[in-house]
Amino acid sequence: MVTSGRDAPRPVSAHAPVIVTSPPLLQVRGLVKRYGGHVVAVDRVDIEAYAGEVLGIVGESGSGKSTVLRLLNLEERPDAGEYFFDVPALAGRNLFTLDRMAQRRVRTFDIGIVYQNPHLGLRMRNTSSGNIAERLIVAGERAYRTLRLAAREALAASEFPLDRMDDPPVRLSGGMQQRVQLAKAIALKPKLLLLDEPTTGLDVSVQALVLDTLKRLQRETGVTTIIVSHDLGVIRMLADRVMVMRYGRVVEQGLTDQVLEDPQDAYTQQLVHAKL
């Protein structure tokens, strides 16, 4: 099961060869998550993401990539690790050690997330617009018309048909549900957008349309984005940089083109070839 080279430290391009003028928006160090005592889902992972960049995380199911995303969204507590966010109010504070209410504020104001399964991200029986309004309500907005306007704007930005904005997600197609999630994620203009297999399970044609929307939105807003996918095509289309994960560890990382065209790690090679 364990490849011979797995435990040997190998030189990986730890930092992307880009000219960096400002500190990373997000810095995660030594992330560890175990389940049930002996299952290590995430093993000493470091992540850096710079303002405006799109970081892809690839790997097969069970590689720990979705766990990383849940940890970044502060849904679970890690067993070890530090998480810093370069915004004035949070400077120098490890987000993992904040109390529940402070973490909720970070999740409300600074992070947006789109899940593969819309049930995780949406209230399926409330109105679609209400799903977005709730986020603003939690943020303190108390004017009904402002809530309506914001929901309308966010849904329009994610190219959702506005004549259906008050339909509950349970009555929408899969593609539309993802657009509602996206609208909810960006409604408060977060610093960080997390995408967990956002198009997996959609029809190929719908998938392409949703990906177009994601790409356009990311370009327009410049939101720092971390996208998790097992689909190298999705990563190739969206990500500037990519991290390859296996057995909870990062086996290779670098610029997307570089890693996908010229993989160094044996597992990455296998992954890229399987795709072809």
């Binding site: 603003l136 402002t146 409604a187």
Partner: peptide, 19 residues
């Protein structure tokens, strides 16, 4: 009359959020 239609304005000014 209480509704301000300023599309660009931040919907919720930071720091004013109350739970």
């Amino acid at each position: 009359g209480t509704y301000s239609e300023r599309p660009g304005a931040p919907l919720v000014p930071e720091g004013t959020a109350e739970q």
